[in-house]
Design a protein around this nucleic acid. Structure first.
Lengths: 344, 344
DNA sequence: TGCTGGCACTCGTGTGTTCAGAGTGCCAAG
DNA sequence: CTTGGCACTCTGAACACACGAGTGCCAGCA
């Protein structure tokens, strides 16, 4: 079976590249003649036809019917992305525009909202941005406020600027001194720690209080842990669904499952979750686990303040998309969001 | 010009009603023959034709081309909704299902999320739910927490269960006693008041403090007012966009502007804002101010805990929709959400 | 060995025509 | 005012047909 992945010579690769580029541009099957006209390959259509036959043999392209041009397959796009395309850097004016647009953000919500819109606009596709994830972020401060004799408000502030609050009904009256003590101890241990580590660090805390106060302490802690756990089911923001209308000819069939997928936060989260931490991830067509997205490609990447990624963002579009341009836009936006987060 | 709105006799109205019902069901222009067959009108097709001619004359129906059936116009739907249709109450099992589904909600976000999903599912259309509006809601409690010598956290809790928080950078160090004093005075005046009224009530507050503390007090108040004002630009939740695929034949053209509208929170807010406070509002086709929604109808209603509405919800669908059913679902959901909010 | 031009063949698309059916408007009679 | 009848209109489906784009194959040439 050594021939399975036969070596393709340079010209065949060039032909594949040209096919992808043309098809992405015209949205129509591309034939040998048009190909040599538009790209100067230096050979005749007949030669190209031979190469095309070979490419089809290997499963990189495919023709809808005899006597039609060729269309790249998922496998063809894959090869294109892996070997034949380079991420197209944004132009200086584009970079400036991105920077400027994101700089205007006033808070975390606004950063995410602007990012997702920007990404949708730049790529003219559906953009998805995950809120900076709690499980990756660390505790900046935890505040406890007595609102009533047996009611405490719990506020959790994270390094990403995100704030979560919860009302706690305590089993008994809570003294201000106990509360202050608890607040101090919690912050001493938890501040600066990653959320998932916090429960372990606070385990022994109830034991340090008098028996009478223990139920209260436990209740507060339980709520705190619950808040952290709940929030790990993270939020996502979406934009550019109107771009789906430019999807293709066989509209309703393609678009409906996509719209359904987009409404399911869980699906989107899993989608982004598949992003490899290190670099940009491209999932093409059937490579996507969710079958509603089998005719789409997902380009995603992690972003974060500093060097580690706290969340992910990406775009969803037809497999027939401009990969270099899309990847360039996604990378650029991720980079700038990271900077913005680092600054604030 | 007395003839402009000529009186239509009962049978003509019955014919209009039948046309609307049939067209909504079949999505196809309805002719005189089919009409007498499906509804027992007790007259012949020829008679119906005469009535149809009259209805067309008055602008209630319209035929796409000669020798085609009739389609209701916006004006026809309007008459149907106003005079010919009754809101169709939900069945007992449906009501139970709604109740049960909403009862599972754990917090405000969850209530809104469940509501919007439920509404989309019940009506098989796009559902829109506005978060309980701050401008209508009242202050339950305002909390000030000293986080650092010159940093105060401001927490605003509303009767809807919504909580907003803001960090305040004070011009100078803030004493705990001053803070406690301020907290007390703010709550004494603002608690139970409607958000828009609060600034007026706290106007004179800085004057009650010593000159040294006034800058701090002013800063805190300014932030508080800002928070309230900012939040008045309210949030909206959306579901059921996948239902747009069932929109019609001439797909992309119709759906794109709708998707665009749905992405603009501002548009949606204005849309819901047009809801008349008292009862259910139905905007049909061109009655909608936003032209992207000219071929859709919007059914909306206010909801709230107790008797006054704190926010609005509704659905967006094709003008060719089942008005009685949709209105029934919208009304029922609004009612139950109100109950849930009142209970919690 | 590999490229090229030529050639026959395939097949989808667009155009034109026909035909049936649904629906209408009008009219005269009940 | 209602009804049955009738001639007319128009759409949509079905069909035929020609066109052209595109292919595969082959023989010749570097």
């Amino acid at each position: 079976m050594a021939g399975e992945v036969r070596q393709l010579d340079d010209r065949k690769l060039a032909v594949l590249r040209a096919i992808v580029q043309d098809y992405v541009g015209t949205e129509e099957p591309v034939g040998s003649k048009a190909l040599v006209e538009r790209h100067n390959l230096g050979v005749s259509p007949a030669t190209v036809r031979n190469d095309m036959a070979a490419l089809e043999e290997e499963g990189y392209i495919h023709q809808p019917h005899t006597s039609a041009g060729r269309i790249p397959t998922d496998k063809g796009y894959r090869l294109f992305v892996d070997k034949l395309a380079e991420v197209k850097p944004m132009s200086a004016p584009e970079r400036r525009a991105i920077r400027h647009f994101l700089d205007g953000a006033v808070d975390l919500d606004d950063v995410v909202a602007r990012t997702v819109r920007l990404l949708a606009q730049l790529t003219r596709q559906v953009a998805v941005v995950q809120y900076p994830s709690l499980s990756r972020s660390t505790v900046r401060h935890i505040e406890l406020v007595a609102l009533a004799p047996a009611k405490v408000m719990l506020v959790l502030i994270m390094n990403t600027g995100r704030v979560e609050q919860r009302l706690v009904d305590c089993p008994g009256t809570v003294g201000e001194t106990v509360l202050a003590d608890l607040r101090g101890r919690i912050n001493a241990r938890a501040a600066g720690q990653r959320l998932p580590d916090v429960p372990g660090l606070l385990e022994e805390l109830p034991g340090l209080f008098e028996a009478a106060d223990r139920p209260t302490v436990s209740t507060v802690l339980a709520t705190l842990f619950e808040t952290m756990a709940e929030q790990r089911e993270e939020r996502i923001m979406l934009a550019g669904t109107a771009n789906l209308t430019r999807f293709g000819h066989d509209f309703p069939l393609t678009i409906q499952p996509v719209l359904e997928a987009l409404e399911e936060q869980v699906v989107l989260l899993r989608l982004l979750g598949e992003t490899v931490d290190a670099g940009m991830t491209v999932r093409i067509g059937r490579e996507n686990a969710y079958e509603g997205l089998n005719s789409t490609s997902v380009v995603s990447v992690g972003y974060g303040s500093g060097d580690e990624s706290v969340a992910k963002l990406g775009v969803i579009g037809p497999t027939r998309m401009d990969y270099p341009g899309t990847m360039g836009a996604v990378r650029a936006v991720a980079r700038y969001v990271g900077q913005i987060l680092a600054e604030s």
